[in-house]
Design a protein around this nucleic acid. Sequence first.
DNA 1: CATGAATGAGGATTCATTCAT
DNA 2: GATGAATGAATCCTCATTCAT
Lengths: 191, 191, 191, 191
Amino acid sequence: MARPRSEDKRKAILDAAVAVFAQRGVGATPTSAISKAAGVAEGTLFTYFATKDALVNELYRALKLEMADVLLSTFPRAADIRGKYQHFWNTYVHWGVANADKRKVMAQLHVLENITAESRAIGYAPFAEIERMGVDSIRRKQIRDYPHPFIAAMLGAMAETTMVFIAQESRKRAYYCAAGFELFWKGISLE
Amino acid sequence: MARPRSEDKRKAILDAAVAVFAQRGVGATPTSAISKAAGVAEGTLFTYFATKDALVNELYRALKLEMADVLLSTFPRAADIRGKYQHFWNTYVHWGVANADKRKVMAQLHVLENITAESRAIGYAPFAEIERMGVDSIRRKQIRDYPHPFIAAMLGAMAETTMVFIAQESRKRAYYCAAGFELFWKGISLE
Amino acid sequence: MARPRSEDKRKAILDAAVAVFAQRGVGATPTSAISKAAGVAEGTLFTYFATKDALVNELYRALKLEMADVLLSTFPRAADIRGKYQHFWNTYVHWGVANADKRKVMAQLHVLENITAESRAIGYAPFAEIERMGVDSIRRKQIRDYPHPFIAAMLGAMAETTMVFIAQESRKRAYYCAAGFELFWKGISLE
Amino acid sequence: MARPRSEDKRKAILDAAVAVFAQRGVGATPTSAISKAAGVAEGTLFTYFATKDALVNELYRALKLEMADVLLSTFPRAADIRGKYQHFWNTYVHWGVANADKRKVMAQLHVLENITAESRAIGYAPFAEIERMGVDSIRRKQIRDYPHPFIAAMLGAMAETTMVFIAQESRKRAYYCAAGFELFWKGISLE
DNA sequence: CATGAATGAGGATTCATTCAT
DNA sequence: GATGAATGAATCCTCATTCAT
């Protein structure tokens, strides 16, 4: 058996990609910058990822799965409907603030045409459970009756906006987090 | 360094840039694609814009100014506070839907590190009047008391999200436009 | 009008390609070696030839056409059948000896899978006239009855072999040229 | 530097090289393609052959020796002079048709600058006996008086040409084989 | 001023070879 | 010895920018 492919190195490349992508932009970052940041040779990157596109797609999936895990692993099944939405909001915002680079990269990735339909499907899969809860809360008339994807997208966009403000004024983190959720909740709650 | 002769050609280049940027992405578009789309020679582009970055920055400013003009030129000074916000919302959404390319490009531009602080300042300037109105409405307790930039950013983000849904289901344009504003207004109105 | 594309430069690139291809082999020659030998920048090569393959194909056609021109421009229509074949033989051998690089490159090109069917067709076209004469001479029973392509290929292969020997012993050029043709002619003549 | 253990593996690599070289060309074939086709690891190839060039040279020699063996092992010492030449012709053509890959590779190898003078010498050695017979037949005035290497090269080139036609029209194998030899023999026979 | 050919640095990827396991 | 990951020089091609016409 030869030297096995190192999971650490793989992670290092992915992490390095996040760091440099956040700083320079996905499209503007040469693979050489990634390999250098990861501390591997230029060619090594290509033993772990066949092409730059493949790397970008894998990164997309990894970030999506990480986010889903963060959102779901501490989900309060016993909470009331407001508590559940609040959980998503808080968890998302805190994760986003603590992982500013990952958030920036995710924002770029969502918009990139390099991401394949398959990657999008895989990245979306774990959110299906979240969607089910959301749809359910609408059917049970626990929140206002809008299409669920619309509500989810609004939550995402509003949370992103909130994160931007927290990034600018980190002292007011609690304030913005609460204010953002208030705005959102007023919008979708029944009264 | 005299101003180049043809203002038309300048416009043509900027318009062409919008079209190709929307399709291929700002970073992935070569200047040659822009000049070809504009019907001018590759070199000509550089007599109007010193560098690609300069072109991108001028485009940013032009789009910002256009948007401000759209928002302000028909502003209903006599309307009540809800009517004023509704005006911004409707105007922005309709403009964005009718000018999908420009909207896509703006979204990319906002996030690009190529845009200088100066460009951002210039682009922001005409929105100062809007800001004054917004700040005013808060001071007068016509809407809930959040920092104005936060509200403005939320309006922008929510309107963008709305436009995405309209782009996907153009038949439901009126529905989404209204739903989005409802969500927003519930969030910031006092009762 | 900008600087016009220079036919000279185009020729220079093609000539340089012949020289370096002959020395290092088509597949083993980087485009940078060609551009350097031609005295142009690396990028310039690609304004004249879209890809390396395109360059190779154009070279193939150019060499084929040149050869056809050499063979046909002095063709002795009045000569007897032996004289006609002798003309082809002599002309081909002398051209090949005088243009050793081109001959070497042609030999490589013929065998390369990079050469498109279209290029082969174009390169073959001017030889159609030669083929007609050959087929004719067979129909009229002026030479032995073999398929014409077979005879033509034999003539080519035998002439090539002859050229190799002349390249090694240039003093014996006349001897080998005559000996080679003798061998060929004995093979195909009726008595 | 002890001889590597498995002679089988060595053979497997050489055989694999023939197969992939024939398909993709010597220059265009990466060593990884050879090792994969041989069913060994990439690194293993280099315990059997120090460099790609070394492998290519050994392959050249192996093929040359194989050919010499084929030509000589069944040599009809009792036959008349025509029968002897006919034997070479037939054996060569049949071997070449049956081993199309090896023939194609040989053709490439002959022309490659990677083949060292030493390899050429070694590859030629077993043909010395053939040469002796040939020279002898000339001295005894059994065939026309041309330099033996010239005759041998002609036989080779004409046989190669014959093989190409048989490869294209395998039904006419017997015809082309006979026709080719006829052509050759008419050329060198005394009457 | 308009044109588009010329330039060469830079980018993604390949590949012969080395070396840790 | 066998394996295949690691390496980095080399390759083809792109593209922002310059400059001759």
